[in-house]
Amino acid sequence: MTDHQKDLDGADMADRTAATDLALIRSMMEAGRRRAGIDGTHFVLWGALLMLAFFAQYMSVVGYIPETIIGIWGPVTVIGWGAEFWMAHRERRQGPGRNIALIAYSTSWASVGLGVLIYFVISLAAGTFDGRTTSILASGLIGAAFFVTARVTGVNWLLYVALGWGLLLTYLAHTTVYDAEMLLVMAGASALLILLPGQLMKRLAADEA
């Protein structure tokens, strides 16, 4: 709460100027923008899970732990979606959840989860699973979700995160080699381009509260 928002109804009209009104407008618009924003919890959740999963897959590929795709990605999927359903249930109990920006944000990220999940289940069932395709698909969907999130919340620095995923997508689409080190790149991208922005968003949300 800024000084501009204090004692609105008791404001001394003699002290009121166009400049003070513009300052009030600016502070309230910023508060509204953050209200429409997000607290970064979902980013932290998925950033941490993906970072650990890609790193575990790297360890598996280089032979430090037994080779198992389902053994790594199965728990990640169950934990991630379980936590999402729990948080959605909690948010429904706590508030309206009808804010259009929140709907756009949650829908874009649900699209990421569904897109990757569909590919994961079908390709494993059909025996066509390919790590490079997964990474390309995930990078494109995550980049798009960050772009949508930045636009609807007005948190413009998230556009740089979207750009980061776009660059990674470009690199993945360009390279012909997808070796174990690429799994480390994806683990690093998950930490740098999901987990870290999530922590920053949580800090911003806490400051606002």
Binding site: M1, Q5, K6, D7, L8, D9, D21, L24, I25, R26, M28, M29, E30, A31, G32, R33, R35, A36, G95, P96, R98, N99, I100, A101, G154
Partner: peptide, 24 residues
Amino acid sequence: LAIMSYLSTAREAEFTELRTRLKL
């Protein structure tokens, strides 16, 4: 003016949320 400024970016808000934020 404060209500309209807030809603221009938040799009919608609960009554109680506005009451708390505007201290009314």
